[in-house]
Nucleic acid binder design. Sequence first.
DNA 1: TCCGCTACCTACTCGCAGGTAAGACTACTG
DNA 2: CAGTAGTCTTACCTGCGAGTAGGTAGCGGA
Lengths: 231, 231
Amino acid sequence: MHAEQPVRTGRAKRLPRAVRERQILDAAVDVFSRLGFHASSMDEISEVAGISKPMLYAYLGSKEELFATCIRREATRMMEAIATGVEPDQPPDVQLWSGLRAFFGFVGGNRAGWQVLHRQASSQGGPFAAELADMRGRAISLVAALLVHSSDFPNVPRAGDKEAESLAAALVGAGESLADWWLDNPEEPAGVVAARLMNLVWMGFGDLVGGNVWHPPSRRAPDTPQPGAES
Amino acid sequence: MHAEQPVRTGRAKRLPRAVRERQILDAAVDVFSRLGFHASSMDEISEVAGISKPMLYAYLGSKEELFATCIRREATRMMEAIATGVEPDQPPDVQLWSGLRAFFGFVGGNRAGWQVLHRQASSQGGPFAAELADMRGRAISLVAALLVHSSDFPNVPRAGDKEAESLAAALVGAGESLADWWLDNPEEPAGVVAARLMNLVWMGFGDLVGGNVWHPPSRRAPDTPQPGAES
DNA sequence: TCCGCTACCTACTCGCAGGTAAGACTACTG
DNA sequence: CAGTAGTCTTACCTGCGAGTAGGTAGCGGA
């Protein structure tokens, strides 16, 4: 799970600041994800990072600043992964599908990052949750734009945008929760989890219990869920 | 939000143990929900409860035991609220609808309880998360049974149960997330939030962008979302 | 009215973890 | 070979909060 550095003795090798900072952030994400914000000690983080505590403070400031930096880094990585994965000229369901695959692919390849980003950040109050809320807001806007663009909401005359936005919030929330659930049930590959959510939000239970499933255009038989990216 | 006791001076009124324990748990849920587990001090909880710290230890044991007791109490309350709200002889969509209304009704009336139950418990590791996972497991089983009972899953020959269970997990997760989202956007009434999730999971985006919405049987016109229970 | 029990308190101990002071080692530059 | 800038360390201070020792006050029973 987390790479176990051999116990450090004596002085660490001299490295340029940028490299050290990356190492420290990696270590911090690892420790925060395993222990949570409060239970993580700066001593432990510095030990995992292979340096001594004052380096932490010299480079990353206080514990809270360090945590915020972790959150920002992981949030940025995730949004970039999604933005890279989605194909803007496709029909809406395919865009949604590729977005979901990118999202679950990222989570699968960055369990620790997702853990600290979502679970930890949301449980600490104040600026951390705000940081997270900002990222979620961007994701919601993305989905909402997709929905609004893809069709009108004929039955909700004036509130179309708000309606779309809150549906998008529900979807994003479902994705976050399913990702959390996946952390505890890691045996399934990313594509299967993504396909499940895709079916749920695109088809709905009403269709699914009737046997209608969504499937990507022209690839496989309708009844096999898309394997997709591996965990 | 939380009832502000006047600053206590001198000795508290003598009360039977059961009553004190309830007071203490109320105070603990309040403080835990606002500050989180680690940031909450036993001093603060005892102060809010209107008693002195040794009483906490005498009645509720250690801080961890106190927290676990809070979680269990809130979890039990929530499952009871849902079980009471659902009507077993109705068709599946109506059962789901009433379950969702009961759930969001509970959360709306117990913001602090939900906060500590979900956000706090899930972010602390170990036994607390396990406690929560147990409750979630029961909720998932409930929904999965509903799905399996309501119809076959024709396209997934042998894995029907597992498929249903993981869809149920996604739904429960969506509900949890939407409830969290609702904590930060509390202006909407419970019924509207419940109706949104109902539409999402029952109809799916595929229908919704086409203008098809779900509505409770024989109450209103199909195009108005159900206002439902008030916050 | 005295006993004993339960509710309740003040006033501590003590370890842990965030944060820092002050200096030592390395490498580059002239 | 100085001088300087940046890297890195040991060894400490300090406050906060979990948990406790030991004692006081009200109440019910005989």
